[in-house]
């Protein structure tokens, strides 16, 4: 995949993830789930996925200069 396509891929993926983080907890079933495995787990999972994605992207940042 070209660099430009990779930029678009990550940008679109991140926009979808951020929108999901704003929307899903406010709509059923998460908005009715009064358990620790509801919105609490969802937002934690969201943050961990973001951290993994950033780990993948930054893997190309090297010390070569």
């Amino acid at each position: 995949m070209s660099l430009e396509r990779q930029r678009i891929f990550w940008a679109v993926l991140f926009i979808i993830m951020i929108l999901a983080a704003f929307i899903f907890p406010f709509i059923p079933p998460l908005s009715n789930l009064t358990k620790i495995y509801g919105a609490f787990l969802f937002w934690n999972a969201f943050a961990l996925v973001v951290i993994v994605c950033l780990g993948i992207i930054t893997a190309r940042w090297r010390d070569d200069h």
């Binding site: 951020i18 983080a21 704003f22 919105a39 937002w43 969201f46 973001v50 940042w61």
Partner: peptide, 23 residues
């Protein structure tokens, strides 16, 4: 309640911007 967690973790995910702007 838990909305505070969402607020703060979405803020943390703002580091996505550094993936593009940092370098």
């Amino acid at each position: 309640g838990v909305g505070a967690l969402g607020f703060e973790l979405i803020y943390l995910s703002g580091l996505i911007l550094v993936a593009f702007f940092g370098p």
